[in-house]
Write a protein that binds this DNA or RNA. Structure first.
Lengths: 333, 333
DNA sequence: CTGTTAGCGCTTTCAT
DNA sequence: ATGAAAGCGCTAACAG
């Protein structure tokens, strides 16, 4: 790989001149500039971004931290961030936290070591403290799906409470009165908010909340199944079920079918997230949309503002909306 | 961030000593070593991998090039590579090619500029030439799902022909004689191989190949629909359909249902890849497994061998297998 | 075994 | 507008 020296040599100028045409910040004599460009072409010169990064302690790339690489949710998140940043000529460095504290911290240190200009993350295990400290160091962060005081506009969140409300309210409007709820893990803030929304809808409709009718899962397909089984074995009957995400809804659906139930006649089910497969399941799943792509893009935009001097509006709170498909129907006595 | 100088200072040694304990290649006086480690701890020292990379032109990280970030297929690929490499303490830098020549080349140059020690890629647009050149430069590459002479063991491929054969053969064994085929784009090698397998199964069973019964799509859900419609409008009836991937199968299935067909009674369908959603569709999809995770992991292992001195066996050809679910059934006259 | 000294390829004052 | 020179944080000969 040709270096800037060789280019300077070939063009008969100093390396600072080459550097200048490279960065285009200051003006360079057109004639020299042409020579330099010619030399770069001839030598097939590619600037070494490592060297540049060492010299500037910038890198024109932002880190992303996701929990998993192979989930539709994180797929959408990564895709949106990458697209937004690519449009601004920034690169993206993806790391994985595997939902584990140590791995998440490793990932962040990797990114710091790589001179990332900022980090966009979906951190599940890290403490608020750590995140706050991180953000107040010279490395801006943006948190998707998590609210941490002290990170301010960097937090891009969904109104989960509203989503939970929407799901349950939909069922109530369909005439259901006994509604089961399969929740996410209670140490996840989004899970609690969704559940809170569920309770609010119940309360608003004058329906008493029945603790027996909620099962706490961990967002997996298996837990959807386990949850349904558990709820069914209890002594509180129900004609509808809301699941705090689509995976659990899918698990509950196939379990219900295995049990010989007819969907949605015997049980109305609503999910949450509108994952890609929501319209693949049968019956197609009524769910609450989670505009993760928009949120991720916004997160990227915030970073663009903060570190690269852009001046776009940023919206920090996103609204979910109900997507009615075929997995829910009116209550039949 | 503390530098190696400050550590050396604090520990009262030279920076080379610090460098030595850092890399652990040569022996260092235990007493000094302890001092250094203490100093590192006190200063919360983190080596700057950029600087190290500039000095060594190595980076302990390997690049990955995928076509998309948000597809189950590439999700599995990335996940497997990341896991394998993480276990060997290597990092991964992911880039996206968007199925576009220029973007793919950009991505590769980004990776080169970042001093990646190797690249694992699923390159769709790049020419064999380019790939070969790349590989013969000092940067080893590994190609998943693509065979390029000159890259040798770096090519990790699936026996696509076998897969196509399996799919069709399954249908034939079920008594079907008129079998539609929705193919992938004919400029994709895997698509052609799968089709070739289909033809072989037909021939072996003494069934004449009917060009009218094949539709060329581009692996999208929409094309599954378009394909079915096109085939249905033709004058060659068929009782079964093989789709060259699960997306198209899914599209064909929902289209068929929209048309009022009963599945699988009116039409048996088999897919290819065994994507996550294959068991979400209804009826659950009979398909051909594509062991992409294993292949990706193998690809990583090959890189580990070539650039980091590991000595594992590598297998370059993988076999697909038939996964029978509920979307296919015996032919009824 | 330890310290000194050059770089790695580029940016960035500082003069000119 | 251009060039010379210092330095980003680290590794790797080379002496000692």
């Amino acid at each position: 790989m040709a270096t800037i020296y060789e280019v300077a040599d070939k063009a008969g100028v100093s390396l600072s001149t080459v550097s200048r045409v490279l960065n285009g910040k200051t003006t360079v004599n057109p004639a020299l500039k042409a020579k330099v460009e010619e030399a770069m072409l001839a030598l097939n010169y590619r600037p070494n971004s490592i060297a540049r990064s060492l010299a500037t302690s910038r890198s024109d790339s932002v880190g992303i931290l996701v929990s998993e690489l192979n989930s539709p949710f994180f797929g959408d998140l990564m895709q949106a961030v990458e697209l937004t940043l690519r449009a601004a000529d920034k690169h993206v460095i993806i790391t994985v936290g595997h939902n584990n504290l140590e791995t998440e911290q490793d990932a962040v240190e990797f990114l710091i070591g790589r001179n990332c200009d900022a980090i966009i993350m979906h951190a599940e295990a890290m403490s608020d403290e750590y995140l706050k400290t991180l953000n107040s160091s010279r490395l801006p962060i943006s948190l998707v799906n998590r609210q941490v005081d002290g990170v301010g506009e960097g937090c891009i969140v969904l109104d989960n409470e509203k989503g939970g409300y929407l799901a349950t309210q939909h069922l109530i409007s369909l005439g259901h009165k006994n509604i089961g709820y399969i929740s996410g893990p209670s140490d996840k803030c989004d899970a609690n908010q969704r559940l809170a929304g569920h309770k609010r809808a119940l309360k608003e409709a004058g329906i008493a909340f029945t603790p027996n009718l909620v099962f706490e899962g961990s967002y997996t397909e298996e837990d959807g199944k386990a949850g349904l089984l558990e709820l069914l074995s209890g002594d509180s009957p129900f004609s509808a079920l809301v699941c705090a995400n689509d995976w659990m809804a899918s698990g509950a659906m196939s379990c219900a079918r295995d049990l010989g139930m007819n969907l949605p006649q015997d049980l109305s089910i609503v999910g949450f997230d509108d994952a890609v497969f929501a319209h693949h399941v049968f019956p197609r799943l009524t769910t609450v949309s989670n505009p993760i792509s928009d949120m991720a893009a916004m997160s990227a935009r915030h970073i663009l503002n903060v570190v690269y001097g852009y001046k776009d509006e940023v919206q920090t709170l996103f609204q979910p909306s109900l997507i009615i498909r075929e997995s829910t129907m009116a209550y039949e006595a």
